[in-house]
């Protein structure tokens, strides 16, 4: 199983939708790779510049209802080709969450107060996230201090993660 984690990108807004994650005008692309330069291109967030801030990021930390809107699987594909392997949010839109699971990306929900605490303590700092699936904890490291936050995955979600995503899970079993 691949490790989940990496440098943290803080997107401090609720309701970041799939049009913002990958604009509709790029849905005509036939390869996942072609989506790479356009991830979050239309996200207008104070202080955020997709062209600069996405480089080498591994994990997105955000607020509620991440991925609301369309069913385009291009949205998690655009995350994947940019090296984003996990998103930690207060909540996810249903289809987007399924689409993340299809490709083996990890969607972790944490309670609102925990998300609030994470943003208060770490936003604006250079933070690194490691997700320990065995212990079910998110570890956030800033400088040399580590903070841990427990999370829960359903057994089915966990099985998908172990298999590398729904597509691989289905190919092996159906």
């Amino acid at each position: 199983m691949k490790p989940f984690g990496g440098p943290a990108l803080f997107l401090d807004r609720s309701d970041i939708n799939t049009d913002e994650i990958i604009p509709a005008r790029y849905l005509t692309e036939s390869t996942k790779e072609a989506l790479k330069p356009h991830l979050l291109e239309d996200l207008d967030l104070p202080g955020f510049d997709a062209a600069v801030d996405l480089a080498c990021m591994g994990v997105i930390l955000t607020r509620a209802n991440f991925g609301c809107g369309s069913s385009r699987e291009h949205a998690p594909w655009a995350l994947e080709v940019n090296g984003i392997n996990a998103v930690i949010a207060e909540s996810f839109a249903r289809i987007f969450r399924q689409n993340m699971a299809n490709g083996g990306l990890l969607a972790i929900e944490l309670p609102k107060p925990t998300i609030e605490e994470i943003f208060t303590r770490f936003k604006g700092k250079t933070a690194r996230v490691q997700i320990d699936l065995k212990a079910s904890v998110v570890e956030i490291t800033v400088d040399s201090s580590v903070a841990t936050f427990p999370f829960r995955l359903s057994p089915f979600d966990r099985a998908l993660v172990d298999a590398g995503g729904w597509v691989d899970f289905a190919d092996a079993r159906y």
Partner: peptide, 9 residues
């Protein structure tokens, strides 16, 4: 609504 992988399924 479903994603493309589930369209495939």
């Amino acid at each position: 609504g479903i994603g493309t992988s589930n369209v495939r399924d």
